[in-house]
Write a protein that binds this DNA or RNA. Structure first.
Lengths: 222, 222
DNA sequence: TAAGTTAAGCTTACACTGTAAGTCTAGTCG
DNA sequence: CGACTAGACTTACAGTGTAAGCTTAACTTA
């Protein structure tokens, strides 16, 4: 008696690294990176978990893959334009991409990223700064300063526990845990938000411009 | 027949929230936050995992607790001194504390922190800026800009995969994956590091000074 | 003193996780 | 035809947080 275990439809479409990464990216975008498990990912691809390991060496490799996919969405600075404009565009694009993939910033800053998209992204950034008259060393410092802002700002923004529009309303509930006699300045800030005198929204460009303006004097003419 | 299960020595010292948080902090410092499990923590306290739940509502509560302990180590800015000096000291202290607890920065930026140490820390920061002549709104922006740098810089620093002293030596191994025809500028930077023309070490104060200098013009006289 | 209550430890169990190890099956090649 | 291989699979293990309920000793009150 023939032992037929499966009808001969292993997957509708054959598995591939690309298909796996694509599905993983979607899963992470939907439910955050902590809800991206090998079993759930496999299920989404109509496959069993261990089959994924034919295309991905382990979960770290998978995460490296989707992080690099995210990085590749960032608009890379061109060498042609004014360096401040180019850096502003780069930062704005990165910020937008990171907001589209709310799990990604944490992943980026907590792992070593040497995917080809990341290398290209960094190279173009350094190149733009070098061509603008920064030394090798200063270009590295400038790049670091800008990225600190991008990652730091985005993480704090994503971590903010309510929507900007509801901030004013929600702030009122928190007021009781910020008594004026213990936290006078924080209490004052909260009052300003409640009363609509300040919307409490942080501006990505504010810190960015501080850095870009400050960097200009470190160029030396070519 | 009396049913004696345990010799009457449940723990050598009675459990307490403080003792649990203290042990948890040590465990996290030693092995990172991912190696801090309720079972390991309990074992370290000569107790079983579920006993911890008499003092801690769940693991999130535990993490909130140790994060706030870390925050409490940061030197809070005084209202008396020059605002730039005070902010510089605050940032430097925060940076040092975060390096002492390498897991902490990620924990801070990935959860909502409303422990008393955090509230006090934020209040003192806002106060210093307000007294220096920043408006409520500007103080909030300034605080945010500075913290973006602190968290962004520290995360990138902690994520850097080798020690500063070995950087030059290790860079040589990576050179082959950064071919000059694909990544000319990154390749050049790497060469500078290998040849000792640049140590490749990022400076916490560099970005910080950019921000502090830029902020000054946003004060308005009292 | 007896009874009742509570605090603070405990065991067990469940639904998850990543992945090592080994197995089955269909297809290709010599 | 026989061997090999690619690509799916099953099973199993050691770990996770924590819900549910049990045990025992100490304290409180009648």
């Amino acid at each position: 008696m023939a032992k037929i275990r499966n009808p001969p439809t292993p997957p509708p479409v054959p598995l591939s690294r690309e298909r796996i990464l694509h599905a993983a990216l979607h899963l992470a975008d939907e439910g955050g990176i902590e809800s991206l498990s090998m079993r759930k990912l496999a299920q989404k691809l109509s496959v069993k978990a261990m089959s994924l390991y034919n295309y991905v060496t382990n979960k770290d490799d998978l995460l490296d893959g989707i992080v690099d996919k995210v990085i590749s969405e960032i608009e890379v600075p061109s060498l042609a334009t004014d360096w401040q404009l180019a850096m502003r565009q780069r930062a704005t694009s990165a910020h937008a991409v990171l907001l589209r993939h709310p799990w990604a910033t944490m992943a980026i800053v907590s792992r070593v990223n040497v995917g080809s998209a990341m290398l290209h992204y960094v190279d173009a950034t350094l190149g733009c700064l070098r061509e603008a008259g920064f030394s090798v060393e200063m270009a590295d410092h400038a790049w670091n300063a800008i990225d600190n802002h991008i990652y730091g700002f985005t993480l704090q923004e994503l971590n903010f526990p309510f929507e900007a529009t509801e901030y004013s309303a929600v702030a009122e509930n928190y007021l009781s845990s910020i008594p004026v006699e213990h936290y006078p300045y924080l209490n004052q800030l909260t009052h300003h938000v409640i009363e609509g005198r300040y919307d409490g929204i942080h501006d990505f460009e504010f810190g960015l411009e501080l850095i870009l303006s400050g960097l200009d004097r470190f160029r030396h003419p070519t």
